[in-house]
Design a protein around this nucleic acid. Structure first.
Length: 595
RNA sequence: GGACCUGUGGUGCAGCUUGGAGUGCACGUCGGCCUGUCAAGCCGAAGGUCGCGGGUUCAAAUCCCGUCAGGUCCGCCA
């Protein structure tokens, strides 16, 4: 994508010291003025010793500097150039350059710092291996694209802060050295020197701290917070990430959703995206039914269709399943036999027993299905399948039969795979996913598992089912999704001891266990806890999507590789035995040296 | 823990299917020429542990096994 420089409004006056202008601010209107700029040599074009062009770059732009004697300048030298802004001679204007109407003449060039040839060209158009980019991140970041992305991210942050402040939120910092909680994601452990054998952990989120702030009476708290999770990395996941974290008291779910919607729309505007429209809304059940995922990409259709009823009396074994989901594939002509076989493998890889495909072709008696299984269909089944899927000639229908959630999930993944190219990269479809189940299932010991966390308030209409039918209880929790990426989630919290006890009981958490794990929070709730709820969304993800990237590394200055290494610093590194001693720890032989 | 893709002068790539001398392209670097270029142009030169280790073979960048690094995904993760 094209990256335009993000020039802060005050650029023009901010230039001081060794320069009085930013390069991108120069234009024909400045002709005749002597200016001083600083930057890096982007390119030297020497036409003999009497005419040399030097392109000098700062983050805001590039300008052509003219010299009439040989210069000892190479790429990436850091220079200060004093010169006269001059309109270019007739016929030499460069329309591809923002400063293409002018050049600096009568110049005095000072080398502030010489530079070795860089290991790769500092140009957007040069693709560089990821490991190389990360090893020389300071050079990678010098490129226009990365300059643009990080400066845009700063603007997004700023817009989010402004939105929060406008809505009456107070920014409060919470500890990085937190207490271990035997919950969910793996925590980064920080051994204590003063309390040997004990540790702090780095927070996975400020969840508990912000609820305590509610008890404390800070009724609208927010923080742009670093969070850390020791889980395997992905394109949208780093160990460290940044969230807009907020919590508010005396509010409903709707209030929280409005606060957040305001912030993300403001962030989008800051990123130059105006056409976001309203934030949509869909229930979790609908999202699963129609898109096969709780984070639907709603930029394109091809929704899943329930065809269970069509084959309720089928003799085909593959179709005898609790739930049958169908998808009319986009671009059916591209689905060759081998592509279809790949899809079958993909479906199996996702845990499905199989994937049936049927192609609608013109036959002697109108449209008919062509497929390895279609001959086992009754005429009624064929007809009814055509009706419900609304196929026309050439279409391919894909069917997965399984338990409801599995069938939805598998076909939802296939939908994404086939439809991804249909999503308009310039469209931003924010959507709230609401009415999540309170429990996502049961563990090996038959205990219910929290879908969000154990303080999530059940939907009031479902209170009565907590004991009788807990899996059908909906929670007051909500996710924000953008173009198929989960940006974040939140919930209204339980602030009443009686409801909390019931939920703990459902989760198989005893009073004693609850006390051990969350004692200080439960204690706090005894002293007057306001009804409260909150939300947190990933700014890395939001920023990546808003600048058109599909990997959050592109909006993080110094990210880790997928194996969690920093190839620039070499972290993580083994440390000296003395440091372990100081912490009262010893280390077994590193795993890689064990047989 | 698992699946797949990638690794070849400083950079990006081709070569690998079907083994035959480190072969090729573009950029960069170094030297020379060049007074209006802007991814300047022209001429010339230097630059290689084909990620690493092992195997097969008369012969391996190429085939096989292992391993390391980077990436995408599953598991994991809100």
């Amino acid at each position: 994508m094209e990256s335009k420089p993000v020039i802060n409004e005050f650029s023009g006056i901010a230039a001081k010291g060794l320069r009085n202008r930013y390069i991108g601010s120069l234009s024909a209107a400045d002709a005749g003025e002597r200016v001083s700029v600083c930057g890096w040599v982007a390119r030297v074009r020497e036409h003999g010793e009497h005419l040399v062009f030097v392109d000098v770059r700062d983050y805001s732009g590039i300008v052509q500097v003219v010299a009439h004697s040989s210069v000892d300048l190479r790429s990436e030298y850091v220079v200060q150039v004093a010169g006269l802004v001059s309109e270019r001679p007739e016929g030499t204007v460069n329309p591809d350059l923002a400063t293409g109407e002018i050049e600096l003449t009568d110049t005095e060039i000072t080398v502030l710092s010489a530079a070795e040839p860089p290991p790769f060209a500092i140009q957007d158009r040069v693709e560089v291996d990821e490991a190389m980019r990360l090893k020389f991140r300071y050079l990678d970041l010098r490129r226009d694209k990365m300059q643009h992305h990080l400066r845009m991210r700063a603007r997004i942050n700023s817009a989010i802060r402004a939105s929060m402040e406008r809505q009456g939120f107070t920014e409060i910092e919470t500890p990085l050295l937190w207490t271990p909680t035997p919950e969910g994601a793996r925590e980064f452990v920080v051994p204590s020197r003063l309390h040997q054998g004990s540790t702090y952990v780095l927070p996975q989120s400020p969840q508990i701290a912000k609820q305590l702030l509610m008890v404390a009476g800070f009724d609208r708290y927010y923080q742009i917070a670093r969070c850390l999770r020791d889980e395997d990395l992905r394109a949208d996941r780093q160990f460290e990430f940044t969230q807009l974290d907020l919590e508010a008291s005396f509010v409903t779910q709707r209030d929280i959703m409005d606060f957040i919607s305001d912030a993300v729309i403001a962030a989008s505007r800051a990123a130059g995206i105006s056409a976001t429209g309203e934030v949509g809304e869909i229930s979790w059940k609908d999202a699963m039914d129609r898109f096969g995922t709780d984070k639907p990409d709603m930029r394109f259709g091809n929704e899943l269709i329930d065809v269970s009823a069509v084959f309720s009396n089928t003799s085909v074994r593959a179709l005898s399943a609790p739930c049958l989901k169908a998808l009319v594939a986009p671009n059916p002509s591209s689905l060759t036999r081998s592509k279809l076989d790949d899809l079958v493998d993909r479906a199996k890889g996702l845990g499905a027993k199989g994937l049936l495909w049927l192609r609608a072709v013109a036959g002697s008696e109108g449209l008919q299905f062509e497929s390895p299984v279609s001959k086992f269909f009754t005429a009624d089944e064929s007809k009814s399948l055509m009706d419900v899927t609304k196929v026309s000639e050439g279409d391919v229908v894909l069917i997965v039969g399984d338990a409801w959630e599995k069938a939805c999930h598998v076909l939802g993944q296939i939908r994404l795979e086939l439809g991804r190219s249909q999503g308009d990269p310039d469209e931003f479809r924010f959507v709230w996913v609401v009415d999540f189940p309170l429990f996502e299932g049961v563990d090996e010991q038959g205990r219910l598992i929290s879908a969000h966390h154990p303080f999530t308030m059940p939907n009031e209409e479902d209170f009565s089912k907590l004991e009788s039918d807990p899996l059908s209880v909906r929670s007051q929790s909500y996710d924000l999704v953008l173009n198929g990426w989960e940006l974040g989630s939140g919930s209204i919290r339980i602030h009443r001891a009686d409801i909390q006890s019931k939920v703990f009981a459902s989760l198989g958490i005893t009073e004693e266990e609850a006390g051990n794990r969350f004692g200080f929070l439960l204690d706090a709730f005894k002293y007057g806890a306001p009804p409260h709820g909150g939300f947190a969304f990933g700014i890395d993800r939001l920023a990546a999507l808003l600048v058109g990237e599909d990997n959050i590394r592109e909006v993080i200055a110094f990210p880790k590789t997928q194996s969690g290494a920093d190839v620039m610093t070499g972290a993580p590194k083994e440390i000296d035995t003395r440091i372990w001693d100081l912490l009262g720890l010893s280390v077994k032989a590193p795993k890689k040296y064990l047989a």
